[in-house]
């Protein structure tokens, strides 16, 4: 049995199964919220941009207003990170807005894949950058404050190493390892399957 022999009947069957018949529903469909992955990423990016702006303002305020020098440095470092994060998010938003659903299927798949990959990459990098920054800044604040409170006491003794630094370093490494795998797993769960699907579709289109 050939496809061509049943062409008209097949077409009719697919077209006539109308599950959405009321005309006013068409109008309401235009006002509804989309459920696509790209739409969800767009919403996430908007929320993250708003949060990053609020955090930047707060960090900048504390970087100038806080009385302690070490805390001013601490908040200063985080202001730089959050401000650069705002710009990264704005660039991603621009990329998302350029996504055009009336491009050819292949181009649309390529663009969607590139945007989702960029989002996943950006999210992962940000999480990983925060780990050493948080540690370094915490150590810096601790050393600075410790020295200002007890200027004659050294913190780099064997006792301090075994009772403070070593447990802290072990905790930091375990926490970093956990964060690394958790972030990877989280992103894979959220977007991994969809990215794989897009990859397969692109490959199938390209194969002759």
């Amino acid at each position: 049995m050939e496809l061509d022999a049943l062409k008209d009947q097949l077409k009719l069957g697919l077209e006539s199964n109308r599950f959405y018949q009321k005309p006013d529903l068409l109008q309401s469909a235009m006002l509804m919220k989309a459920e696509s992955v790209v739409k969800k990423i767009k919403q996430s990016v908007v929320a993250e941009t708003a949060l990053a702006i609020v955090a930047s303002v707060a960090f900048v305020y504390f970087a100038f207003a806080y009385p302690s020098f070490s805390f001013r440095m601490y908040f200063g470092a985080f202001s730089c990170i959050s401000i650069s994060f705002v710009f990264a998010l704005l660039a991603l938003r621009l990329k998302l807005h350029k996504l055009d659903s009336d491009l050819s299927v292949k181009q649309n798949l390529l663009d969607t894949q590139s945007v989702i990959k960029a989002y996943v990459r950006h999210y992962f990098r940000f999480c990983m950058i925060l780990l050493p920054v948080c540690l370094c800044m915490a150590v810096f604040v601790f050393l600075f404050e410790f020295n200002s409170v007890t200027p004659n006491q050294s913190i780099f003794t064997f006792y301090m190493f075994s009772h403070l630094w070593l447990p802290l370093i072990i905790c930091y490494f375990l926490f970093s390892l956990g964060m690394f795998f958790f972030t990877k797993l989280y992103l894979q769960k959220l977007y991994g399957e969809h990215l794989q699907l897009l990859e397969n579709l692109i490959q199938e289109l390209e194969n002759e």
Partner: peptide, 17 residues
């Protein structure tokens, strides 16, 4: 043709519930 593009692009990247 335009509507087909939009419809197919949406269907292919549509995340099923």
């Amino acid at each position: 043709t335009w509507l087909y593009r939009v419809a197919l692009n949406t269907a292919l990247t549509f995340k099923r519930k």
